[in-house]
Design a protein around this nucleic acid. Sequence first.
DNA 1: CGGGACGGTATAGATTGTATACTGGTATCT
DNA 2: AGATACCAGTATACAATCTATACCGTCCCG
Lengths: 120, 120
Amino acid sequence: MGKAYNIMAATCPSRTVLHRIGARWTVFIVNALDNRPMRFTELKAHIRGITPKALTETLRAMEYDGLISRTEIPANPPHVEYALTDLGRSLLAPLRAVREWAESHVPDIERARAQADAQR
Amino acid sequence: MGKAYNIMAATCPSRTVLHRIGARWTVFIVNALDNRPMRFTELKAHIRGITPKALTETLRAMEYDGLISRTEIPANPPHVEYALTDLGRSLLAPLRAVREWAESHVPDIERARAQADAQR
DNA sequence: CGGGACGGTATAGATTGTATACTGGTATCT
DNA sequence: AGATACCAGTATACAATCTATACCGTCCCG
């Protein structure tokens, strides 16, 4: 089998996949849905600073790619639940690693930035 | 120590860090510099489809954040070498995981997209 | 019927990314 | 010496994406 796809090739479909993963809010949504499904408004409250437009668009794109499922629940009151699919869940491990790297290396990067600023 | 930073908070500095990691071309550059330092033109050839402007800007930003180093080599012919710093190298593991996920899940995502298209 | 929660849209402006062309310096070929 | 080519980028114009802010229709509760 080996590697059938290579992200470095411009025409490679893995590019479009990486493009989606790298989109502004995907990491946040995958991390937010880690434990349990959430509703639109819940997600909006949980991911501070996201606008409804950005949330809608990212959710639609992720649904199109089969990463999350969108279920309208006709109960009373009716609401919509977003959940990770199996495919989306498989993204959890890599993206959690990225999140943890970010959270743990803030001081290093702030130091580098301060040093770069001082340099000039 | 625990988690001092939480990406879900809008004001958290880890946001800006994640923003940089998630930028369009960062993943490609980190993966490209995995084995050895490279020059500007080498990177441009290796990462198919990147424009010189995008490459310059991403490299500058990553240098500012202390992820890569830029060294002008006054030898003959003079050239510029970009290399991962220790900090940048620590990003390799998480980003390689993301790359591998992308490369190995192309068929799943293409299937999901085809199915979504057919649905309508 | 008034008001609020839910799940979004609409619109406009700012930021970011892309395509394409070009530059200035050095080295090599002839 | 002149032409050509490589290197490391800039410049310019245009397109796509992201953000802020406001608004909408439906349903339920009182």
